[in-house]
Amino acid sequence: MNRILVVEDEEAIANLIRMNLVGAGYLCDIAYDGITGADKMEENSYDLCLFDIMLPGLDGYGLLDYAKKLKIPVIFLTAKGELKDRVKGLRAGADDYITKPFEVLELLARVENILRRFNKTEQIIKVKDLTIDMTSRTVKRNGVEIDLTLKEFDLLLLFAQNKNVALYRETIYERVWNSLYIGDSRTIDLHIQRLRKKTGLEHDIEAVYKVGYRLKAEV
């Protein structure tokens, strides 16, 4: 399991991130100021760090230097959303940059993305009798490969990475089709139908009334 350090002085936001990371299957430590954050980096080994920039004690840029020495990838998490701030953060060596307010799904996707880039994540996700290989982008059911289209694979991956989360139609559309949802639910419903049939997840991908769909599974 990947271990993630969150340094954020806002208790509410720190807890929000922790709850979601734990929910997605990560181990998560929290520090409320820069000094404690640096101490924790020394004590434990982390696969990824999330830093706020404005921190008491030691700020995000200072923490970034520590993390770089220890070769830990870093995502900045800050309300400073101006272009020059983002450029400054990325120039300083951050691997990604998330501006507040952010959506939890976006945070998780970026975390997942960075971990994969640094080969720190499991490249294989298991859902019931399915094995999803993210490197080769193939899905096997009991050892037999299932033929999925590009969108169907992305859809399955989204559900697999967000088990037990009710995914709103607009969220699904934005994540898989990468464009703004304009109320056309037919496309999503059609793809879900085919995905269910191909993967045999007829009863596991369940419709949530007025919301969208959810993949029910034991974590």
Partner: peptide, 26 residues
């Protein structure tokens, strides 16, 4: 303006994040 935006975004992040959790998770 920058400070104000920061002061506004911080609580908003929490409100949006927790509300999202409430609506999409058990």
């Amino acid at each position: 303006t920058a400070a104000f935006a920061h002061e506004l975004k911080t609580p908003l992040t929490s409100v949006i994040g927790y509300a999202d959790m409430l609506r999409s998770r058990n």
